[in-house]
Design a protein around this nucleic acid. Sequence first.
DNA 1: TATTGTTATACTCTATAACTATA
DNA 2: TATAGTTATAGAGTATAACAATA
Lengths: 154, 154
Amino acid sequence: MPMIQKAIEPDVAGESRLEDLVGYHLRRASVADMNDFVRCFRAEGLRPIPFSVLCAIDEQPGTTSAEICRILGLQRANIVSILAEFDERGLIERHSDPNDQRIQRLSLSAEAKSLLPGWRARVVEREEKLFHTLTAGERRTLCELLARVWKGAE
Amino acid sequence: MPMIQKAIEPDVAGESRLEDLVGYHLRRASVADMNDFVRCFRAEGLRPIPFSVLCAIDEQPGTTSAEICRILGLQRANIVSILAEFDERGLIERHSDPNDQRIQRLSLSAEAKSLLPGWRARVVEREEKLFHTLTAGERRTLCELLARVWKGAE
DNA sequence: TATTGTTATACTCTATAACTATA
DNA sequence: TATAGTTATAGAGTATAACAATA
């Protein structure tokens, strides 16, 4: 009985190429996205992480800094300067909570409320350009797979 | 003729949530992967980017620093300290090219050649754990979509 | 002129430890 | 004890500009 040999050996033991590692492609795609974001919002001085903080405050008005950190996966220490800058620029308001003197309730200022929808629309438009090699369905698939990755890693 | 109303309005104009942005999930997943890598290889002092440099040298023996930067999407300036550290640790060798005095041909040392397969296997094993919420097919799909994203963004 | 390797520099993101004030 | 906001600090990754040597 003759041995049947596989025509193609896609992954020899101990021979994984960089191209086969998910982490490699994650980094490349994430860097591409970050750079694109910065390029697009250079004039506004808006960066990816601060933008996500702004969105989180908008989506959870009256939330706290610690809660946003839990939602976005940031360290409490690292959101301080972001919020301080937004405060200086008049984009957020902080109100102390009468029932708990430790916390500050965060909300967008009127100016931020008027600016954010336009910024969001530009972010969506930007993503459509950056991900032009993917169909709308593939973009949703990508989102869903990525979400399962990081939510499963928490 | 009565108006037919949609039961669900998934994305009102100007109302994109953070959860719908690909970039957000890209960052979360990439950070999760990077942190996991660091945790896994803390003892070896091996970080994700240097690891990818090591792999690139292994996969393209005799290549140059500039060429690796083009392959991995790094700045020429940022690979200098990585190669210097590998040199100090005896993991790479640099040979000047007789035909072009500007360039250095890079290759792995014997020690690196003996260590790398084990490291690679652990990286693969690590990814299998990190991406346990994804089937093997979904992991391949993810890789393929991510590759199209960053290759289309260059 | 263009490329290689390099130095210098700066910025963003992330992580950890520790403090204070409140609960 | 535990939590919220904060300060200080460090490290990794990335980006830009410029230089000398070589092509």
